[in-house]
Design a protein around this nucleic acid. Sequence first.
DNA 1: GAGTCGTGGGT
DNA 2: TACCCAAGACT
Length: 341
Amino acid sequence: MLAWYDGAARVLPWRAPPGSAPPDPYRVWLSEIMLQQTQVATVIPYFERWTARWPDFASLAAADDAEVMSMWAGLGYYARARNLLKGARAVVAEHGGRLPDTEAALLTIPGIGPYTAAAIAAIAFGRRAVVVDGNVERVVARLFAIPTPMPAAKPAIRAATDTITPDTRAGDFAQAMMDLGARICTPRSPKCLFCPIAAGCTARIEGEPERYPVKAAKKARPLRQGTMFWLTNANRVWLVRRPDKGLLGGMRALPTGPWEAEPPVLADAPTAANWRMLDTVATHGFTHFELVCALAAARWDGQTALAPGEWWPIADLESAGLPTVFAKAARLFREDGACGG
DNA sequence: GAGTCGTGGGT
DNA sequence: TACCCAAGACT
């Protein structure tokens, strides 16, 4: 694997060349958080903007919370951004501004779990650590043809990974396994002809490498419905801030009622007004449900009471840092020509 | 162990 | 198209 990696490693902004000195721990940490459940190509532009704005732990720890959330907008899983800020502040306050170099200490930092702790220890500090992410799970499940369905197979996969992890260059080994999983040992149509370890792969010898890792059938995503509100005042629109915990926590948003199985009502509007329903609806797929939102537009009369929020210039809505579901809805309101849009 | 938590790319 | 899934963590 290391020999293959020496010649085939992807060049990435947070990565050092194979066999060279470890990269900046801050950049390793940031990239690992951004890469959780997120593909490399999606992360790269966010990583570049982020490091230009906050190049180290000290600058990030001193950053404004709202600006951090806005910079993360569109990347998803927003708890990562909240924990990233907590993590940077913990590193400054409790570790002298430098990331600790052991897995156990790394695990105490918000946002760092078993995978990320092992990855940072190996990649940024050159320690031997058993790094198991989704790529490694797939490669190892195939290499050893592990028949146990996920997630029950996780302990066996970790044990098997331990047996093939080298004592030196564990970081390069981990990155080699992840590159292999991302480019060759892919979930569907693995390219075994280009695989450096195909000769020892039990799943390939069996003839159906795609069968691994074995997974149980998953259930269908339920439908949820709701209403989003577009309240305007001159050339501005009313935005709210969502509660810190839960779905899209801490993010700027359009006012919305709850998202539930039942059809929506207008009772959750941000203010009393002559709401006009648009002809179109906004749809968006989340991890565990599908959302269909009715769209209601109105002008504020300058009199009725408003819950906490802020007027935002419609022409500058791109800088509000709206999650994608709200950015999509905002586009529909503006295309409709709704009041002020 | 199971549910929650986004979004975009690939097929 | 509809579905799968990604360098997981947290509760």
